[in-house]
Amino acid sequence: MKQLSSYIDHTILKATATKDDIIQLCNEAKTYQFHSVCVNSCYATLAKEQLKNSPVKVCCVIGFPLGAMCTEAKIAETKQALSDGADEIDMVLNVGFFKSKDFDAVSKDIEAVKKCMPNLTLKVILETCHLDEDEIIKASEIAIQSGADFIKTSTGFGTGGATIEDVKLMKSVADGKAKIKASGGIKDHKTAMEYINLGVERLGTSSGIAIVTGKTSTESY
């Protein structure tokens, strides 16, 4: 197995996160050798600056957390984030279009973002708390067909986070064609290992330090 820390996107996405919070997040990511830091797009530049000369990547969220911004705005946000230094993008699927069964629009939304970053890692957040089993299967299929490198469970801002059952479903659809990122509510070493043993290749969490040091965190994401 890879080192546990390399599974972790060290995450801070709350609206009130300050410059100092981001600097601390980046320092922790360097110390614990996390895969990336995951931040809102207004902090891409700052995170990149903090992480220059380090292998830690910058991951930015797009259309976050509702996924309901128009496609063109998602494209503009992505391009800006990439030019500010983002290495990976986590976009939220348009859940409203999905619920309207306008699968074509859902797919185009994802394809348009992928087109901005053909060689970089795109993760598509399904927000599984809003979806039933059939919808999770369908959303996973659409995301993968539209160019997602990862399908990701949750924003951490919905009504619930990752569950073992949802991840198993996603894994069965992905079947090697895409990787899985589990996020939302993963706060301790034991839970993290459960997901990794299911074949999850990335964890989004604010509790990365607790996870790698074997403690339990009080963070909510």
């Binding site: 797009s41 207004c42 063109e72 946000e77 500010d84």
Partner: peptide, 24 residues
């Protein structure tokens, strides 16, 4: 809305989203 609901998208993204919404 733009930059909704966190307000934490980059300024450039807020500007673009707002402009596009007005256009629409």
């Amino acid at each position: 809305v733009t930059g909704f609901p966190l307000g934490a998208t980059s300024t450039a993204a807020k500007v673009y989203e707002a402009k596009k919404a007005v256009e629409d």
